[in-house]
Design a protein around this nucleic acid. Structure first.
Lengths: 208, 208
DNA sequence: AAACTTTTCCAACACCGTTCGAAATACGTG
DNA sequence: CACGTATTTCGAACGGTGTTGGAAAAGTTT
């Protein structure tokens, strides 16, 4: 079958899901398509462009997931709910691809039309909520970078660290607050609450 | 001169600053030390460990920068100022290393003692501010992941994208909010305001 | 069918992380 | 000092990577 930018990105996403970020190579992507690595370069400038295209696709998926989530919202939902729905959709979408956060992190977000779509809708939500235009960009940017950062951190912590008892005791004396006194809610819970925290901040900007 | 874990991390940081994340190789690090690549493996398990050590060093630097910033605060400073100072110190430190955000992103933050130090102090600040312990971890985590995400986004935008007039016109019709109506404050300004936004969210948690 | 364009192959290049046995160096002991 | 041992470095090698460029194939137009 003929080689296409679209099909290459497809294969890229599939390979990415299988072998992760570090295992993604042009040769493996080509192999999945029954082609040779060099052939990809006729359709794609290099690995960088492929990664950028993949990142854009993730943004697009997140956008679609967001529209679905927004559509499922009850009519009495507030703008808090709308923002929460978009944030959660973005997080879930990134999470679906192992290492997907790094993917987004490694390619410039601006001028990727998928990323711009996400931004645009978020801005609209905030404007509708009554946040003055002058503050909207800051607010939307804050939310987006927060979600990215959160998922990034999440992935780093996910392989449960093998903590020996000895290490734990050491940590307890050196970082008493973290280890001892702090309740550790689930990541899902923490994410929801952190987004609500942001919304509370946004609310202080709303002009009646 | 003798090879050491410490000296290897030094050379790693220097090489990293010169050639960036993608250009960092064991061979280049070794070359800077007048040694061969294989020799590094006697002191370091592999490139992963080197990167983790480097990430930890960045956290340490950020911690020290934070203490300096806190010390320079006037006595009438509020807890908002204290959090802002720590966030700004972290951002500046990460920024000093090109691609430093990706460095932090690619290594697990937990169990890195530098990262834990950052977290611990942030928790203390929030506790002193009156945020109940049950919410502190969420708040601190939110702030840290926000700063990371922000710098990440910042770096992606930094190489000013070559926007042709044609592309700009296309974007204007497709994303009117972003391109047209939104004022674009400086990144410094945006960062400060986003942190204040977070603080406003934290303030709603404070029990009198 | 011939001329031409688009697409794919394939071999090669330079570089990468990592391993391993052999050298070399340092060091404590007789 | 000399000798044996432990620590450290070398240097070559292996399999893998992104990328290139000319030859070959496939498709299209005249």
């Amino acid at each position: 079958m003929k080689l296409t930018k679209e099909r290459i990105v497809d294969a890229g996403m599939a390979t990415f899901a299988e072998v992760g970020y570090h295992g993604l190579s042009m040769r493996r992507v080509a192999e999945r398509l029954g082609a040779h690595a060099g052939s990809l370069y006729y359709h794609v400038r290099g690995k960088d462009e492929l990664l950028a295209l993949m990142a854009d696709r993730v943004c697009r998926q997140a956008y679609d997931a967001g529209t679905a989530a927004l559509a499922g919202l009850p009519p009495e939902a507030t703008w808090h709910d709308a923002i929460e729905a978009q944030a959660e959709a973005l997080r879930r979408t990134i999470q679906q691809h192992p290492g997907g956060a790094v993917l987004l992190a490694d390619s410039p977000r601006t001028l990727s039309s998928g990323a711009l779509s996400l931004m645009e809708r978020l801005l609209q939500t905030l404007l509708d909520a009554g946040v003055p235009a002058a503050h909207c960009v800051v607010a939307a940017d804050t939310l987006l970078s927060h979600v990215t950062g959160f998922v990034l951190q999440e992935r780093g912590n996910s392989p449960a660290p093998p903590v020996t008892a000895e290490v734990h005791a050491d940590l307890r004396t050196r970082f008493p607050l973290i280890i001892e006194r702090m309740p550790r809610p689930s990541r899902d819970d923490m994410f929801q609450r952190s987004v609500r925290l942001l919304c509370a901040g946004f609310a202080t900007l709303v002009e009646e």
